[in-house]
Design a protein around this nucleic acid. Structure first.
Length: 424
RNA sequence: GGAGAGGUGGCCGAGUGGCCGAAGGCGGCCGCUUGCUAAGCGGCAGAGGGUUAAUAGCCCUCCGAGGGUUCGAAUCCCUCCCUCUCCGCCA
């Protein structure tokens, strides 16, 4: 949620910044400004009426104790009450409209974010590692996985439909090993491990920005009014909702492994083969709650932490900075980390690291008291460290050998307890 | 799932219709005193919002959330959420 104070004071600045994302957004600002004016006018009116009512009610109390008749005053207050109720109804409608507008405006891009409309305008920041040169024809990970008997797409479809996959034997072990490897690494870097619920209430998703706008992308358990989490960012970031933290509590570093559940409503036909785009996938997530002064330093460090996993796995990758038009709803600035997929001759996203500044903090009402005693909103950051399934796919593709076997990256061998996956 | 108890400020806890944004304690902050990592004394301190140049005043709201009764609700009624105890079921 944006700061209404800022919208009032610098509407033109905001319109300019938001237009970087989407030209339509500027209109919303004018609409909000109008509603805000109306609602404040109504609030002032109601409060004046209430002040009058409070005074008269108190007077009634005093007169009664003196044993005097108060029926005339009572009648007056009754009339006031009716007037107040009328205005309150008006205010209720205005507030609802106001809130809904506020909740549907995305975050403003940070000034450093490159302008552009979509993926093609993202800016590469750095590259690491050289794609291996091989003298055989590389296979896509789904062929490798099926041949090795570790990825079973047919069974996935039998059990749950398309975009579900069954991992078997060494595939399942490799997935689990990756999770442990990633968690161990991040814990070592000072992140606190969390196992959160995988189902959350609607207001929790509103806190991080998935609701109300993106309900279509979520799985819902209608009967219990709970949603399956699309990422661990949701429960982790909301861990401190409604709290006023002490400055010395910050920064907070959290990590969690969870499955992520996404309906992929808008991506029909995309990445239909393999395990790149699944309805359920595993992810190790990183979340930071920090003070506003250093959130951008923290973002750089967060990216490095995620990158380090790929370096240790010796997988070639690049880091791109998302342009304004490609930015997620809650993010001010985002770096994607993309790993090399030789069969596609492309880098594909395995991590997205964002600084949401105070956008989520406002929605969740997460604040802290700074050294001068002032209460301020925290900044929240999140990043994948990393998407496990995609990392597994990248390993299959980058570590394939001509005989169809897979070399297991060195750092994983103690976890997998093997150095090669052979066809079974 | 059944029966019962309860949710008050950073924490503990009093408060069953007006003088309660809320006693008291602990903790916190500021001062004073004391020859000293303590004790004593005095003082300050909740959150959100409206108005405003104002972090000044004035006003409104907030005692789990939302409704209702009433001239007036932390206090009475209803619904929901959560916590605890007992029973049932269960990995």
């Amino acid at each position: 949620m944006l700061d209404i104070e800022l919208i009032r004071k610098k509407p033109e600045f905001l319109k300019r910044r938001l237009a970087e994302r989407d030209k339509e957004l500027a209109k919303l600002i004018d609409k909000i400004l109008y509603i805000d004016k109306e609602r404040r006018k109504t609030i002032t009116q109601i409060e004046n009426l209430r002040a009058l009512r409070n005074r008269k009610s108190k007077e009634i109390g005093v007169l009664r104790r003196e044993g005097k008749n108060t029926s005339l005053l009572e009648e007056e207050v009754r009339k006031l009450k009716e007037e107040i109720e009328k205005e309150e109804k008006k205010l209720f409608t205005l507030q609802k409209e106001f809130r809904s507008l506020m909740l549907n405006i995305p975050n403003i891009p940070h000034e450093s974010v490159p302008s552009g409309e979509g993926e093609e305008d993202n800016v590469e920041v750095r590259r690491w590692g050289d794609p291996k040169k091989v003298n055989f024809k590389v296979k896509p990970h789904w062929e490798i996985g099926e041949r090795l008997g570790i990825l079973d797409f047919k069974k996935g479809a039998t059990l749950a439909g398309s975009r579900f996959t069954v991992l078997k034997s060494a595939g399942a072990t490799l997935e689990r090993s990756l999770i442990n490897f990633m968690l161990d690494f991040h814990i070592n870097r000072g992140y606190k491990e969390i196992i959160p619920p995988h189902m959350v209430r609607p207001e929790i998703l509103e806190g991080t920005g998935q609701l109300p706008k993106f309900e279509e992308d979520l799985y819902k358990c209608e009967k219990d009014n709970l949603f399956l989490i699309p990422t661990a960012e949701v429960p982790l970031t909301n861990l401190f909702r409604g709290e006023i933290l002490r400055e010395e509590d910050l920064p907070i570093y959290l990590t969690a492994y969870t499955p992520c559940y996404r309906r992929e409503a808008g991506s029909h036909g995309k990445d239909i083969r393999g395990i790149i785009r699944q309805h359920q996938f595993n992810k190790v997530e990183l979340v930071k709650i920090v003070s506003p002064e250093n959130s951008y330093e923290e973002l750089e460090k967060l990216v490095r932490d995620a990158e380090e996993i790929l370096r240790l796995l010796k997988l070639p990758y690049r880091v791109v900075e998302l342009c304004a038009g490609d930015l997620g709803f809650s993010a001010s600035k985002t770096y994607d980390i993309e790993v090399w997929f030789p069969s596609q001759g492309k880098y594909r996203e395995v991590s997205s690291c964002s600084n949401c500044e105070d956008f989520q903090a406002r929605r969740m009402n997460t604040r802290y008291r700074d050294s001068s005693g002032k209460i301020r909103f925290v900044h929240t950051l999140n990043g994948s460290g990393l998407a496990v399934g995609r990392t597994l796919a990248a390993i299959l593709e980058n570590y394939q050998r001509p005989d169809g076997s897979i070399e297991i990256p060195e750092v994983l061998r103690d976890y997998v307890k093997a150095d090669t996956i052979y066809p079974s």
